[in-house]
């Protein structure tokens, strides 16, 4: 049973979209706090560059490419949903999920290699930040993919198509966080 409150639009923005933007706003501050702490430390410790050199820039770059491509399919899915084509929107969401799966698999491979070389989360403050920030981001990727599967399940039946846009907003946020993490953790020397 949906309350009347949910159907009102005094601010001129659909309630769901408004709420997702507030979710994104509060998430920005979470990652913002973590990354600001990292950047302040990084500036104070130029020697962290030597540790950062042990990360695999090529695999990180490949993952960036995968996430950006998955954002493209998310946008195409939104386009299909706006046109009222639920099954097509669902297929494109599945493609986005595939991107998430590839991302997490590559991540798992990277971490296994690094841990086998002796760079663990307790090695130093740099590695603590590396695993925590990327791990928190990976949790967001996994959560996003699960929500996306649920949205695709209803979208397939041409129901609740506005949700495709909402998960798309969230997915772009996850993408943009990675755009910050990749240069900060991998490239910066």
């Amino acid at each position: 049973m949906r309350p009347i409150a949910n159907t009102r639009m005094a601010a001129g923005i659909p309630t769901g979209r408004l709420a997702v933007w507030w979710v994104v706003a509060s998430e920005i501050v979470i990652f913002g706090g973590l990354l600001a702490s990292y950047i302040m430390h990084r500036i104070a410790h130029p020697e962290w560059g030597d540790q950062a050199a042990n990360t695999n820039v090529w695999l990180g770059g490949f993952n960036t490419f995968v996430l950006l491509t998955s954002s493209l399919t998310a946008v195409l899915s939104h386009k299909a949903a706006t046109a009222g084509n639920g099954p097509k929107a669902a297929r494109l969401l599945y493609a986005t999920c595939l991107g998430a799966v590839i991302f997490v698999c590559v991540k798992a491979f990277e971490w296994t290699t690094e841990i086998s070389h002796g760079y663990t989360i307790t090695s130093s403050t740099f590695w603590s930040f590396y695993y925590t920030a990327a791990g928190l981001h990976a949790l967001h990727v996994i959560a996003g993919a699960i929500i996306m599967l649920l949205v695709a399940e209803t979208a397939k039946k041409n129901l609740e198509l506005h949700r495709v846009e909402l998960i798309g907003i969230y997915w772009h946020f996850v993408d943009i966080v990675w755009i910050f993490l990749f240069p900060l953790l991998y490239i910066a020397k």
Binding site: A25, S26, V29, I30, F31, G32, G33, L34, S37
Partner: peptide, 10 residues
Amino acid sequence: MASVGPLIAG
């Protein structure tokens, strides 16, 4: 919402 994020990370 704007202030609690860093402490959640913390």
